[in-house]
Design a binder for these strands. Structure first.
Length: 116
DNA sequence: CATCTGACGACCG
DNA sequence: GCGGTCGCCAGAT
């Protein structure tokens, strides 16, 4: 599937570090953004050493539902990451991924000024 | 083919 | 801090 680059990056997350769907999506420039990253994770094949539990929602919050949420929390804590009420200190554990795809974004992404 | 839904995120009240 | 809305995209119904 086209999610390969995502799994590849997730596999590279160091132990004790985490990543957010948004950061993941941006690092790989996934079209559709965080949502696409989320789908990729949801389709994560099991039994392939993919540390999916190191991927959290924005602000280090666990967004998935049971029973995975509990499992994720458990796994994270087993790595030394403090999890409190389904969330962690994202700023402290966030891992900055290395660009995989060339940062060849030619045109500055300015889709629409949009009234704000 | 029309809708809904989802391991998302930014914004607003 | 919490809950609702909107934008985004793909797969399921």
């Amino acid at each position: 599937m086209s999610f390969d680059p995502v799994y590849k990056l997730v596999k590279q997350i160091p132990r004790g570090r985490v990543l957010t769907y948004g950061a993941l999506a941006r690092a790989l420039r996934l079209p559709g953004g965080a949502r696409t990253a989320g789908r990729a994770m949801g389709a994560t094949p099991r039994g392939q050493a993919i540390p999916w539990h190191r991927v959290l929602g924005a602000n280090g919050k666990i967004l998935i539902r049971e029973p995975y949420a509990s499992l994720q929390k458990k796994l994270l804590e087993s790595e030394g990451i403090r999890v409190v009420e389904s969330r962690i200190n994202i700023k402290k554990y966030l891992w900055i991924p290395l660009r995989k795809k060339a940062p060849a974004i030619k045109k500055s992404r300015r889709p629409l000024p949009k009234s704000k």
